[in-house]
Nucleic acid binder design. Structure first.
Lengths: 124, 124
DNA sequence: CCGCATACTTACATTTATGTTAGTATTATA
DNA sequence: TATAATACTAACATAAATGTAAGTATGCGG
């Protein structure tokens, strides 16, 4: 749990409050958030579908970052009252509104990152 | 110093290598990097000018993140052989090419962040 | 009765990011 | 001789992010 008050947190809040760029990055910058958003851009997914498409993720972090994305209003989480449990995730309109940004980020990154990396398994 | 090999690092490298969005975010996502880039978007600045415009930053981190931005090719650093020392920083063409992204990030953030934050001192 | 499915939770460990504090080199100025 | 300027560096402390490992609830199927 984050400390209620620390210089670290104060600085982050100051920057996020006054710098629109930093605020946006704060919402999507967690380790697995962009891979998650990239997958949900294609449509609704269940938890296990997301998890299986990201073999290296730890479940604790996957769930944590899904919760944060939900808290920040970027994705919906729908639970079906079934056994075994069934949960679906999909983008909210706010999440969808990130699309132009994600596209530019993706194009810029793909253009500028070192070439040697192209051979690695695609995540986005 | 970062551990030479850890799951944490491996995962980050995997994501950055295959996800253009994540690669871009990795270059600009440090705590003070966007405020720095925002300031340099207006033109060349000296170290002390940057430092004074960010009163809350620690110098260790400011220098660290300037070095990282330089390493990643987003800014130039020019040292004049003088005493006291004079160093100038400015955006490279690669740094300038981020402008459309930063603009979208800024607009999206300004539109969507909580209203109560508007009253805080502007950093960007 | 046991094993399985799914979608998590929990406690702890490790790694990483950022901040704190004091210091440095060199020349100029008083 | 002391103080000041600028642009940093270094050692350590603190905070935060991520990963590891084991576990859970419920109903279904064999």
């Amino acid at each position: 749990m984050r400390k209620a008050s620390s210089k670290n947190l104060e600085n982050e809040m100051l920057i996020n409050a006054s710098c629109g760029m930093a605020y946006t990055i704060a919402l999507i910058g967690g380790r697995w958030k962009l891979p998650i958003l990239g997958r949900l851009a294609a449509g609704t997914l269940r938890y296990n579908e997301i998890r299986k498409s990201l073999p290296m993720v730890s479940e604790r972090i996957l769930i944590l970052q899904l919760r944060e994305l939900e808290r920040d209003g970027l994705i919906y989480r729908k639970v079906y009252p079934e056994v075994p449990p069934k949960t679906e995730y999909r983008l909210t309109p706010l999440g969808v509104s990130l699309r132009p940004i994600l596209k530019l980020l993706s194009n810029w990154g793909a253009t500028n990152r070192p070439l040697a990396a192209e051979s690695v398994m695609a995540l986005s």
